[in-house]
Amino acid sequence: MENILQNFDVNFNYQVHFTSHLFDPANDCLRNYLETQAVKAYKKKLLVILDAGMAAHYPELPQQIGSYLRQVNGFQLVPEIITITGGESVKNDLPLFLSLVNAIDKYAIDRHSFLIGIGGGSLLDLTGFVAAVSHRGIKHIRIPTTVLSQNDSGIGVKNGINFNGKKNFLGAFAPPQAVFNDSHFLTTLHARDWNSGMVEAVKVALIKDAAFFNWMEERATALSGGNMDDMEQLIYRCAALHMQHIGGGGDPFESGSSRPLDFGHWSAHKLEQLTNFELRHGEAVSIGVALDSVYSYLLGWLSEADMKRIISVLKDMQLPVWHPLLEKQAGKDSPVIAGLEEFREHLGGQLTISLLRSIGKGEEVHEMNVDKLYEAAAICKKLQ
């Protein structure tokens, strides 16, 4: 008998909305979206998982969310708005993950219902994974509340939690149904989180858009100082570039070895783990971007002037460009540099690292010279 070949395409589409004061009764952005998803035959359910930090900053927020969602035609809000601690620790908490899966079961959230995650990137990673594995996939909506999640992780298709000390070891590719970026939520951020979130914009500009990098170079100090108009522009442009990559002929489910949007990330993931996540993700990525930019310079690809421009922008954004863990420890190799193989293993296939041919143009390599990496780290230390 002949083999039977099956082949089919799955079409994904979702929108990223930009607004402010999302749960104000006068704001119909989320309401209009949900009502387009309603059906006459029955009411769909809504389950909300909220970052406890947001609830602390806005004590009235849970009540506002409840009042707003209970007025949406065709939907029923479950009796409880679940509040959990945000930050990277939630991705290391298997009992918390299972408790959220149990909430899906408790409130009978089916594949026509919606899970709404409101918080930073870690919370959205967790809630997206909960949605992806419950009933083999329920619908989820992301409402990112940090700079980092509004311009990068919150608008993408990846979800996951950490396992066995490895970042995002358990996870799934599950696009959201929609994303709602509320700029007002950014006003609660600590300066450290405001600044560290901007590095993903620097990253994507360096590999894709020189003009965007030039724009940030001119405004880096104002951005770091809290200019909201500039920040809204940065988030919109960064989100657009990420979305173009995901849907514009890239590899959204990472079936190959290429991952250009992870420029600067191979060392960042290891730095986060080794510092027990005391380094913010954006701070670790800043160090990784600096390291790989200097390495690109040492290869003769990037001019010294452009390399120093990159370092200056990161420093003007109050971000680090070096960490002691990049140096040899007690005569042994740096644990960060030793993590190259772990990065390859996470992606699979051959090692693939994005470097810079110039500002705005990335290029991939499949090997890294360890001696040059130590040389690059030494230059980062000097420029720090």
Results as ranks from 00 to 15, higher is better:
W194R: 10
F185P: 00
N168T: 08
F97S: 07
P176S: 05
S153T: 10
G87N: 07
N164E: 13
F129Q: 02
F97K: 13
G87Y: 09
N102V: 00
H112W: 09
L94Y: 14
G87I: 06
L124Q: 07
I109R: 08
I161A: 05
F185Y: 13
I161V: 15
H184V: 01
K158N: 06
F173C: 07
F114Q: 03
T127V: 15
E88M: 09
I141K: 09
T145M: 07
L94A: 11
N181A: 12
V133C: 11
R111E: 08
I143N: 07
A191H: 13
S149G: 04
N102T: 05
E80T: 11
L115P: 03
K166H: 12
D193C: 01
G156S: 06
F173D: 04
S183Q: 02
T83Y: 04
G121P: 00
I138E: 00
I81N: 10
A191E: 15
S89M: 07
I116Q: 12
G160W: 02
L94Q: 11
K106P: 01
L100D: 11
V147W: 01
N159M: 04
T187M: 12
N168H: 09
R136Y: 04
I109P: 05
E88H: 09
V179E: 02
Q150C: 15
I118C: 08
I116K: 13
P79K: 14
S113C: 15
E88G: 09
T187I: 08
H184R: 12
N102W: 02
I141N: 07
A132K: 03
G165C: 13
R136T: 01
F114D: 03
I84E: 15
L170H: 00
G119F: 08
G171L: 06
I141T: 09
G160K: 07
T127F: 10
T188V: 10
F173Y: 15
L186Y: 03
K91A: 07
L186C: 04
F97A: 11
H190Y: 06
A108H: 14
R192S: 11
A132Q: 03
P79S: 14
N168Y: 05
W194D: 07
W194S: 08
G128N: 03
I81Y: 11
D152H: 06
A178R: 03
P176F: 03
D105P: 00
L126W: 06
K167D: 00
D110S: 14
D182M: 13
T127M: 13
I84Q: 15
S99H: 12
H140E: 00
L98G: 01
P176A: 05
R136E: 04
D182S: 12
L186K: 02
N102L: 09
S183L: 07
V78P: 02
I143M: 12
N159I: 03
H112I: 03
I84T: 14
I118A: 10
N164T: 01
L123K: 11
V101M: 14
G119M: 12
I84L: 14
R142V: 04
S149A: 15
H190R: 14
F97Y: 15
A131Q: 08
K139Q: 14
K167Y: 00
Q177A: 14
